[in-house]
Structures are given as structure tokens and as C-alpha cells.
Nucleic acid binder design. Structure first.
Lengths: 210, 210
DNA sequence: CTAGGATACGAATAATTATTCGCGTTTGGT
DNA sequence: ACCAAACGCGAATAATTATTCGTATCCTAG
């Protein structure tokens, strides 16, 4: 299956310099998404990705040191995108905090549900991604954004309380969003659950010192 | 890797009739748990399980039709145990509903965290377990228990509201519990999160018609 | 005590997979 | 037009794995 390799899985073997290789890398990443969505984590193989992309395995391995690196790259891109969305909504100071929280959770849940097959397969294919420093850094940044939001949402809380509150908001949001996405819910269901979660968290933050 | 087989993965190939084979089956299940805990889902192989159990692969395949059936059996046993605990706590009418909810969530979270390596590996090793009818039945029973509890916790809510409430309680509890367990938290952290979640859910149920 | 079913064994089988490597092709600068 | 580097290829390699099956051993009923 796998040869032993302790090299960092994220370091590319070679960087694309000509236009054709840049397109090749893009094609591979796009194909990887399609393979994950259509075949699932179990059937995510380098040969299948290469075939789907219309290139050969050898070409794939010229720009990705191993299979994991493709998956890691997709994970990073996923989180960067949703992270930016969260950041934008929570930082929109033209809205009152509770409105921001509700809007953000709705957006997050819908995003999770729309890309459910991809995200679930991606999570299943990268069982140790959470331990990776990249993942920890991304989530730390997410928690930081939420913590800054809490300065507005719970101004009278102590820093310690705010840290706990941010952790709770972040954890509840991400975990419920993930589980909800596994059920393939309707839009109405998503909104219902999102609003319930947002209401509970709003109440919690008010208790904390809103 | 795997030969095609469309037979139900849960049907045992043969039932143990003599004492030694009954012990063999027990040894295999016990070894499977240890392999999952110590090696993880990725390294869960039939040979490793057989070796750990001190038996041969051939013997293993005499009582389990395939690798999946071992994992499915462990999943079923896991959920039966925690399901019974939830049932007992929520049904204890000597306590007020909000107290029951808090106790149950604490117990559930601690149970999840204590067995985190096993549960996480088990989930990773059975990516399609949630689609299996056995799993759906177990969770349906769990939701039913929560729904019955809501009759006491939110007596003035409509049946529809109670159904939604039960879904929310169940989903929040299981998803947050799972995510929490992945962080290897201290007991104090577990209690803090459990109490926060319990408080939020209690407030939500009160809004619903407590 | 003994035969026949139950049990246990583990090397062999067959399939799958990640990754490599040598060779032919294309590209872009001069 | 030419050449060196970049690129692309895919059969070959090596490792791993689930599962089978022929054979040897054990247990128990009669």
C-alpha cells in the first residue's frame, strides 16, 4: 500500500513552472474533488484521480509527493474559504451581534450541507488531519475570530469567560454543522436547526455578560 | 484487498457451539477493541486482530464472514451500552427534568471521552455504518427515549415541537460529545462544556413549553 | 473407545494500491 | 532552428490485504 516515508506530506515535489504543468495541477485538484464526491474516500486512489484528470499517475507524482498531500491541500482550501466567510459575517459591525451570529451560523450550516459529500469524504480520507499543525493553525485562527466577536457580543464578561464562550460557540457550531450535513437535510430543516442553535448560543452569551 | 461480496456483512458464517469456539469469538472481539485502540482504524487488519487474539486468520473467518462484521458488531455493542445508560438517567422520575438532562449529558460526555480512542477509530473504520439499518434503528430508539423525556420536560409544547426539540437535544448532545472527545479534554473541561450545553438545552426546552 | 462433526490452522491466492523510473515529447529562450 | 530543461507518460515494482481451502487436531455422542 504505502512505502514508509517520514517526509512532510505537504511539501510539493516540484513546483509547476510552465503553463501546461500549472493546468495539470489544477486539473488534478479538480479531479480529486470529483473523485471524492462521486466515489467516496474508500475509492480515492491516485490512479483514479489521474484518470479522472486525464493525466498519468507519473505526472501526478511530479507535483504531489504522495496521495495525502492532495487531500491535505483540499482540506486547507476548504477551511480557508469558509473561514473567510465566517470572518466577514462576524466582523460586519453594521449588524447587532446576535444578528451576526444567526447569519453566520445559517451560512455555515448551509455551506456544510451543500458540500456534504465532499467534506465527509475528505474527513474520512484524512483521519489524522486534525493533528496536523496546519489544521490546528486554521482552527486557532477561527477561534480567534470568534473570540474577537465575543468582545462585542459579551462585553461584560471576563477574558476567561470569553475564551470559554468562544470555545463553546465554535465547537457547537462546527460539530452540529458536521452532523447535520450527514443527514442531507432540506433547506427548511437547516434553517430551523441553525436558528435554534443561534438562539441558544445568544442566550448563553447574554448570560455570560451581554 | 477485498473480494466482491454482496452478502449481508452482519450474518455470521457459523455459530460457535463448543466452549472453545465461544471463547475464540470472545477473544477476537476483545482483540479487535485492543487493535483499534492501540493501532487505529488504518492498521485494523484481520491478521493483526487474529494475532492479537492468539488465533489464526482462518479461525477468525469461521465465525465472521468478513472484516466489516467485526466492526459492526463492536458498533452495535457500543451503542447498546450507552443507550441503556441514557435511558436509565432520563427515565429516573425521582429527579426534576432539568437535573436529569444535566446528569445525562455529563454521563454521556464522560463516556465518550473515556473511550475516545476506541470510538474514533471505530467510526473511522466504519464509514458507512450510519447508513446501515442497524444503526438507524439504534438512533431511532435513542430519539424516542429523548422524545418521551420531553413529555415531562416540555409538557406544554405541541407534539411537533417536541419532535423538533428531541431532535435538537439528541443531535447537539451526540455531535458535541463526539467533537469534545477528540480533544482529549480534562474532566473539568468536560464538566464545564457539559453544563454549558445542558443549560442551553434546558433554556431551549423551557422556551418550547416547559 | 471411537467415529464424525466441529474446530483450528496458516500458507497460498488474488486483488489492489502507492510510488518509481527510464524514456520520449514539448517548450521557451537564444 | 537548436538545445537544455521541463514535462508527461505508463508499465513495472513492491508492499499490503482480505479471504480461501486443504489438512491436522480436538471434542463428544453413542
Amino acid at each position: 500500500m504505502r512505502r514508509r516515508s517520514r517526509k512532510p506530506v505537504t511539501a510539493p515535489r516540484k513546483l509547476p513552472v510552465q503553463a501546461r504543468s500549472a493546468r495539470l495541477v489544477a486539473d488534478i485538484l479538480e479531479a480529486a474533488v470529483r473523485v471524492l464526491e462521486r466515489e467516496g474516500a474508500q475509492r480515492f486512489t491516485t490512479i483514479r484521480v489521474a484518470e479522472t484528470a486525464g493525466v498519468s499517475v507519473g505526472s501526478l507524482y511530479q507535483y504531489f509527493p504522495n496521495k495525502q498531500s492532495i487531500l491535505y491541500r483540499l482540506q486547507v482550501e476548504e477551511w480557508e474559504q469558509t473561514g473567510a466567510t465566517i470572518d466577514a459575517i462576524l466582523g460586519d459591525t453594521t449588524q447587532p451581534p446576535q444578528q451576526r451570529l444567526r447569519t453566520m451560523i445559517r451560512a455555515f450550516f448551509h455551506s456544510e450541507c451543500e458540500e456534504a459529500p465532499l467534506r465527509n469524504a475528505l474527513d474520512a480520507a484524512t483521519p489524522d488531519y486534525h493533528a496536523a499543525p496546519e489544521s490546528r493553525a486554521k482552527r486557532e485562527r477561527g477561534r480567534h475570530v470568534v473570540r474577537r466577536f465575543l468582545a462585542a457580543a459579551a462585553p461584560r464578561a471576563t477574558p476567561r469567560q470569553r475564551a470559554h464562550g468562544a470555545e463553546l460557540v465554535f465547537m457547537t457550531m462546527t460539530s452540529v454543522g458536521k452532523q447535520l450535513s450527514e443527514r442531507r437535510p432540506t433547506k427548511a430543516e437547516v434553517n430551523r436547526v441553525a436558528d435554534a442553535i443561534a438562539s441558544m448560543l445568544t442566550w448563553y452569551l447574554a448570560q455570560l455578560g451581554g
